[in-house]
Amino acid sequence: MSNFIRLVQNEQVKLYVRVATWVMFGILAAIILLGAVIVRFLDDGSLTEYGDNWREEIQEENQKLTQEMEEMSSDSADGGFSVEMINGSTIERNNYYLENDIKPHTYDAWQFVYENAGLASIISLFTIIVAAGIIANEFKWGTIKLLLIRPVSRLKVMAAKYVSVLLFALTMLAFLLVFSWISGAIIFGVDGMNPSIVVDRGGEFIQLNVVKETIMDYSFSMVNLVMMATFAFMISSIFRSSGMAIGLAIFLMFAGNSVVGFVSQYDWAKFILFANTDLKQYTAGREPWIEGMTMGFSISMLLVYYVVFLAASWLAFTKRDVAGH
């Protein structure tokens, strides 16, 4: 076992000694900061802080919004439409606060972290790049020959590489969470340790715990991340080319959902990987991609794909000759 840990250590050393890896962290940090600055300075009202007499403040706000809507709809027919939508939903939300006697939560570090869940797709992208290179690069550098003539089975070498990819994804995720929280705390402050928000779920408002929602959102996006990284890892192992693995995995990551959209009228579409990677489709207030699909079905499909990807990687990595270029 200590032997295996040393193999993983080797992979991590090789990863972090390269500038490219640090650039990935740098890019993620820059995006987070940029996001924070944009939210701060393009204040769209969501940053309003409510004081002790928040009930009156909300009522005032509602009056203002109603007035705005009336002015708009008299000015222009189509311009008023979107204003009506936005203001309308804000008013409804405000009414919900009043009816349920919930003091609106101020936008703070927690909410910033929650909203940054979307950045998990950036982590997916970087993890794909790492997974795509981790085997293929050894072939490119020619070092695979030195790696595989040690008293360590090929399976172990491969497993260490795979674990290293997952470790990288986890590290990035931890970085995203911590860095978002800290920059959020600096720029927006922290409003209590048990924040909640009210969101619109299919026309109905519900109050949600932000921390719980954050964990859920990030966990759901990890499903897609792990599947795509494993896919890239497999391509890297089979074709021994990182370019191919990056290209295919990123293409599928972006095109996958549209493909499912195109063929969703067919029954077999539910067997496509991308119809199943978004487990959020089964949460409250959402419809599954294809009628009749269930969480259990998707999880089984994901497991089947996962096992196939790893088995193919294993076959390609352990059973084939390491010959010339």
């Binding site: 032997n3 040393r6 193999l7 250590q9 080797n10 050393v13 090789k14 000694v17 390269r18 550098w141 020619g142 070092t143 020959k145 030195l146 790696l147 003539i149 040690r150 008293p151 360590v152 010339g324």
Partner: peptide, 24 residues
């Protein structure tokens, strides 16, 4: 085997440490 290929982005020492970690 064939050419002596090493990790180009690591020092000679780091390369040796890398391979040393693979053998107890």
């Amino acid at each position: 085997v064939e050419n002596p290929e090493m990790y180009p982005f690591m020092s000679g020492k780091k390369n040796l440490q890398h391979f040393a970690r693979m053998i107890p």
